[in-house]
Amino acid sequence: MLKALFARRHQGHRTIAYPAGPAQLPELFRGAPLLDPEKCPVGCADCANACPHGAIEAGTGDQGPGAGTRLSLDMGKCLFCPECAGACPHGAISFTNDHRLAVNRREDLIVRSGEIRRLAAPLDEARRSLFERSLKLREVSAGGCNACEADTNVLSTVGFDLGRFGIQFVASPRHADGIFITGPVTENMRLALLKTWEAIPEPKIAIAAGACAINGGPFIDSPDVHNGADGLIPIDLYIPGCPPHPLTILDGLLRLLGRLEE
């Protein structure tokens, strides 16, 4: 018993200061992409060709005659690997340290230069007032590789202490206000996912976390997966990443509840 008390003292208080304090991310963390098509020579598509996931559309756009489509990056397909940035000799694509990536609409995941990224807005007033201070989520892994699952689980440890925001992952869909989906939705999990969704009482919310749940991730177009939950369940929050950093997930959840402003 005494040893446990000494251990408690040794381990100290370790909950992060965020969101009151700054978000601490790894130096090499690849967050929101930064596009600078002004650096693109006409006709160059090195980045799009280097992307194994089909997330990039090359183009210089708006730069006079002959310019085709605008350079864009779909964060829903992006695995935030360093391939495109490494392939671009002109520095037109890079990744910032910005972990705020979650959005409400699928199309808002497409990043174009010159456009301000539209971060997730709060839920409609009816649901927001219900869930703002107490949100219970049922997680379903539908083909997830256990990375999204692990970095969602970590939110409930002392490090992130999700409970302080009134958010909790619960065991039964009957106790839940919403579903939190990871994985590309395998054919073998489709029914279980839909049944879990149906078992959650209205009003409810749906969250797709990770590249797989948004668009199939590394397994996009495999005949055994459904390319994510889109089209099966109406999604209120898309959290990109492979997997999303825990702070990206936390940021998305707090924004959805209207608890983060900037």
Partner: peptide, 8 residues
């Protein structure tokens, strides 16, 4: 349940 068609 998690079968994603990896080897294929």
């Amino acid at each position: 349940y998690q079968h994603r068609g990896v080897e294929e």
